[in-house]
Nucleic acid binder design. Structure first.
Lengths: 153, 153
DNA sequence: TAAAAAACCATGAGATCCCATGATTGCCCG
DNA sequence: CGGGCAATCATGGGATCTCATGGTTTTTTA
């Protein structure tokens, strides 16, 4: 298994530490672990995007298409790299979420880790429950559009 | 034989473990076993969908068309990957059904494994019996409409 | 030197592994 | 033809290991 799958809820302790779910850690290691995970505010949601080397490469890939020294590239670089933080993983598999990131996601107390394949997101459990509900509806619609390729109803 | 067929009923023990029917295990192995089965709540039924690598690839396929880093993709990913659980298979061919999944399917005590070809479903035996009954009626109606000979029972 | 960050250690609950049992089935040999 | 014999499988229980979590100590740095 080499992608981030499923959802886990963990606690933040008094020092702001959270355990990364063990299955995610396994993926990160396979992914080429380089001292920490990349984490930044999601653009379209009150959550954080996070991942390992693969995620970093993907961001590079998006920039690679643009000419060096173009304004467009500079802007995108800022948008993509500007808010990225590298969060170190301690010996017990935990990271510390800085206040700025926590604020963006409205996190306090508990954290939901949500696997999205190539990356994962970090949510406040409450906000995530709401988003999950909407996402499910969307998938249902999607299936209808696809014409019951997958008919389990 | 490389697809899931027929129905089996097994018990859940005190630890929440259930044996996967041996024929299904055989299919899973042929399917490229990667440490566990993929399992998630069915969208339209009080049941669980489950399968091996083939099922995982199918999910990938649904996302393949969408651009990276689009909100659209993230949203679908939440429902497609976020709801999936990877259930490890122990040395005796058993999985543990987490409480959240059991709740969705109304499972306790016994479990029905229902083969659906590429994947299989996990039901509470009662709920499944009910659904099967209705499915038969539906088939009968179809046959009448098609003017086919109704030769079962 | 005080405060923050990182490394280290401890613990309990839950998950995983391993072995035992019993029932069923298919097979071999008398 | 019939009687076991061996193999397969579902199930149960105990031992072990992992992991999340909390706390303490050491190191860094401001």
């Amino acid at each position: 298994m080499d992608r981030f799958v499923s959802t886990f809820i963990n606690k933040i302790d008094a020092k702001g530490r959270v355990s990364i779910p063990a299955p995610f850690r396994a993926v990160l290691e396979r992914d080429g672990y380089a001292g920490g995970i990349y984490c930044y505010p999601s653009l379209g949601a009150p959550a954080l995007d996070a991942g390992g080397e693969r995620l970093a490469k993907k961001i590079d890939g998006l920039l690679a298409g643009l000419p060096d020294y173009s304004d467009e590239r500079d802007e995108l670089s800022v948008a993509l790299y500007g808010d990225v933080q590298v969060l170190g993983i301690d010996g017990d598999g935990r990271i510390v979420l800085p206040e700025s990131l926590r604020a963006h996601a409205g996190i306090s107390g508990q954290v939901a880790f949500v696997g999205l394949g190539d990356k994962f997101q970090i949510w406040s459990p409450d906000a995530f429950e709401e988003r999950r509900r909407r996402a499910r509806e969307k998938v249902r619609d999607h299936k209808k559009l696809l014409g019951a390729a997958d008919r389990d109803e």
